[in-house]
Design a binder for these strands. Sequence first.
DNA 1: TAGGTTTTGCAACTATGTTGCAATAGCTTA
DNA 2: TAAGCTATTGCAACATAGTTGCAAAACCTA
Lengths: 160, 160
Amino acid sequence: MFRVLLRMEFLPTTPNNKNLEQKIIDLLKRSSLSVTDSRKKILESFFQKNSALAHADIELQVGDEFDRVTIYRTLQTFVDKGIIHTIPTPDNAVLYALCKDSCSAGHHHDNHVHFICDNCNKTYCLEHVVVPTIAMPNNFIASQIDMVVSGVCDFCNASS
Amino acid sequence: MFRVLLRMEFLPTTPNNKNLEQKIIDLLKRSSLSVTDSRKKILESFFQKNSALAHADIELQVGDEFDRVTIYRTLQTFVDKGIIHTIPTPDNAVLYALCKDSCSAGHHHDNHVHFICDNCNKTYCLEHVVVPTIAMPNNFIASQIDMVVSGVCDFCNASS
DNA sequence: TAGGTTTTGCAACTATGTTGCAATAGCTTA
DNA sequence: TAAGCTATTGCAACATAGTTGCAAAACCTA
């Protein structure tokens, strides 16, 4: 028996790479960050993978080229500038994902639900699933709500 | 100007301590765990503090008496047996809180919302605020939902 | 392209969590 | 209630994650 798994991924070709690189440079400049190799490469990972990444994932991808510390500092800078946001996970690994345009420096509008697939371990930002408002007990005032759902993602469901 | 802050806390007195100790011993036996000093002391912390605790909190409390490793293993055992559950937090610190009776070994019914106070840093289990069900995108199947709210708690609101 | 500023890499360190193993404490039952 | 078996603990050593200071290198401005 065979099982054939197919998944559309973003496959960079020459023109796309050029477009992506320009997009990344623009994003960095818009965030008033200087354009450096490590920042470009790390952002590239996020755009290409199109899912949330852990520090370890990024280190695997670019760790030969850049120092561990640089990766930590770059991620922190991106969070500060509103380029990426962190995702709390049930097993307490830190994940980072690209913010949509509505995020600005120091102020994330990250009110969508996050989804972690128990099967393939990918983390998705469900941009279109908004965190519901909930009734708080007397005198509790909510300022931020994080919602993380785990289960099986669309791709894993389709291929099982 | 003065500001008077009052909070009811569980103040152990001799009879209460006896009750508490018996309660703890019963709980351990019910979970088929042997009754040891470290387990008793660590459970005592949870009952007395009545809020979620980090490993570090517990180490501060009982670290002189018991080894770091023992605390890790004890917490893990309690989680396995359904005595406490972990709470994911936005800043990725691991917190533990007592489960209610509906939890059983290996199967937590931990569907309530957790609340972290930005002011006093206490974490509360809002037992009566149930995590709402949400609509998943096509072919995503949810099996677990974690919801963590941060803001200002009732006590901090009342005293500001 | 010169100069100031920002970013990077390195080394060292702290914090957090894990594992194997021998010693100890808890539990069982005779 | 004491002997012997099993479960738990403490220690040492290790693994992983994240931080800090500082000098060297890269980046940006004019």
